[in-house]
Amino acid sequence: MPIWHAIWRDAFVRASFIATVLTASPAIAASCPLLSVEDLAEKLPAADRFEFETGMLRPFLALWAQHHDAPLAAPPDGVALFAFRGRPLLIAFRRAGCLVALLPAEPAELWQALREHIGPIA
């Protein structure tokens, strides 16, 4: 496992757990007390950002299942994909704008998941 994967995983698993616990009630979720996807985007200004909504979640959820035994703590309503030149992708699962979980992934892994769930892409 590459070192970047372990670093991202360890840091963001904790952040994801805390974000999920703190956003369990609708009143708290609206304010995202820990981190929203917009806050994350501000911290990653060099990344290109792509948004996917509920209709396109299956490939991303399958990719999550490949890397983790447990399902996401809260069902996401969308995904923000952050792409960095020459670095792994960062998939941010969100619910009501709040960060639920982060998953670093190689582009080839994402292409494979997309191909399996929606058919040939290119």
Results as ranks from 00 to 15, higher is better:
Ala47Phe: 04
Leu63Asn: 00
Phe60Glu: 02
Ala41Cys: 12
Pro59His: 07
Ala80Pro: 01
Phe50Val: 11
Lys43Pro: 00
Glu38Leu: 14
Arg85Leu: 08
Gln66Gly: 09
Ala73Thr: 05
Gly86Lys: 07
Leu89Ala: 13
Pro75Val: 04
Asp39Asn: 15
Pro59Ile: 04
Ala74Met: 14
Pro76Ile: 01
Ala46Trp: 10
Ala73Ser: 13
Gly55Pro: 02
Glu53Asp: 15
Gln66Val: 08
Leu89Glu: 03
Leu61Pro: 03
Leu90Gln: 08
His67Leu: 02
Ser36Asn: 12
Gly55Ser: 08
Met56Val: 00
Met56Asn: 12
Leu72Gln: 11
Ala47Gly: 09
Leu34Ile: 15
Leu57Trp: 01
Pro71Leu: 10
Leu61Ile: 14
Phe84Asp: 14
Leu40Cys: 04
Arg58Asp: 13
Glu51Phe: 01
Arg85Gly: 07
Thr54Asn: 09
Phe84Gly: 10
Asp69Ile: 11
Ala46Met: 11
Ala47Tyr: 07
Pro71Trp: 07
Asp77His: 03
Val37Asn: 01
Leu89Ile: 05
His67Phe: 05
Gly86Thr: 07
Phe52Asn: 05
Asp48Pro: 01
Asp69Ala: 14
Gly86Ser: 09
Leu61Ser: 08
Ala47Gln: 06
Leu44Asp: 04
Leu90Asn: 03
Asp77Gly: 06
Ser36Cys: 15
Leu57Asp: 04
Ala80Tyr: 05
His68Asp: 14
Arg87Asn: 06
